[in-house]
Amino acid sequence: MKKKQWQSWGPGEQAEQHYLVQPRAFAGGGDVRHVSEFLRASGWRDKSKTNGPLLMESPDRTVRVAYDPYVLPGGWTIHGQADGPNGEWSAHLGRQTPVEIVGGLTDALTRPRSAHAPNVWTPLEQQNWHTRFEGEHYTATSPDGTAWMQYHHSSDGAALWWTGAKDKQGNGWTANFTPNTPMHLVQAFSAELANPNPVMRPRGRITHSAQIRTWSVSVKPSELRAWQQARITAARAATWARNSARSTRPRTTARPYTHAGGARTRP
């Protein structure tokens, strides 16, 4: 999925019908450019092959984000290489995971870690999710019982983060993260999972679920483009600020000593 240019619209544009969907967990996958364009604006490289799956690589080449709709079950794969004391990690998210929730994790990949210790459960508890122990597992469930986040221990001693949403009609998705996935990324994901604000989907792209509430809105294409561009502009500005800070940071290593007469020579 190579980069596509946003379409230009003339002054005679017509408003189009869209829907605000709540809860966001059942809004459907959405436009993958919500994720990919933000990463590209943050300096990530597009490694996708023409007409193939999406593949984005971080500037330091240690993390890859892929989306493949051409295989079953398909969806998102995020893989991080081992980094010093931190081991290799990965996350797998179903194709119906809303891009706004995926973006919680992938946006966090572009930002420096906070100095504060992350807590996956805090964003959920702030939105009145119910947390509890279930045997060896620790689980948080949304107020309506349709979405969950769980630190899961299996009988063989293996552990993982397991999350998802499912309605009474069987609609939904699941995702899992290896236990060594950086905690601030899992927290960023849980914050978007619990976010009570609705998300927008075009007409014809609404999941048929008894659990969702929708509001019809008329939106001009230029308005959609402006909202999308604002997100990209914010990513570019943050990237520029980080790069500028690095370039002006004072040197922390001493220069090698040389005699006033020039470079040292061997005897």
Rank of each mutant, 00 (worst) to 15 (best):
Q5L: 13
Q5I: 04
P11L: 11
A15S: 11
E16N: 03
H18E: 02
H18C: 02
L20V: 01
P23Y: 05
F26E: 06
G29F: 04
V32Q: 04
V32R: 02
H34N: 11
H34K: 11
E37R: 15
F38P: 00
L39H: 07
A41L: 01
S42W: 03
K47D: 15
N51L: 13
G52D: 06
P53G: 10
L54W: 13
S58D: 06
D60E: 12
R61F: 07
R64C: 08
P69I: 05
P69T: 08
Y70F: 15
V71S: 14
P73H: 12
G75S: 11
Q81A: 15
Q96T: 11
Q96V: 05
T97L: 14
G103P: 03
D107Y: 12
L109G: 03
R111E: 14
P112N: 12
A115L: 13
H116T: 15
W121N: 06
T122Y: 00
P123G: 11
R132F: 11
R132L: 02
E134N: 10
H137R: 12
H137Q: 09
T139Y: 01
T139L: 15
A140G: 13
D144E: 14
D144N: 15
A147I: 04
G157R: 08
G157L: 09
W161K: 03
G164F: 05
A165F: 05
K168H: 01
N171R: 11
G172N: 06
W173A: 09
T174R: 14
T174H: 11
F177N: 01
T178M: 10
T181Q: 04
T181W: 03
M183C: 00
V186Q: 00
Q187P: 00
A188T: 05
L193I: 05
L193C: 04
L193V: 03
N195M: 07
M200Y: 01
P202Q: 07
R203T: 11
G204T: 06
R205S: 12
H208Q: 14
A210Y: 00
I212F: 08
W215H: 10
S216R: 14
S216H: 01
L224F: 03
I232Q: 11
T239F: 10
R246H: 04
S247E: 10
T248S: 13
T248W: 05
T252A: 14
T253W: 10
T253A: 12
A254N: 07
A254M: 09
A260T: 07
G262I: 04
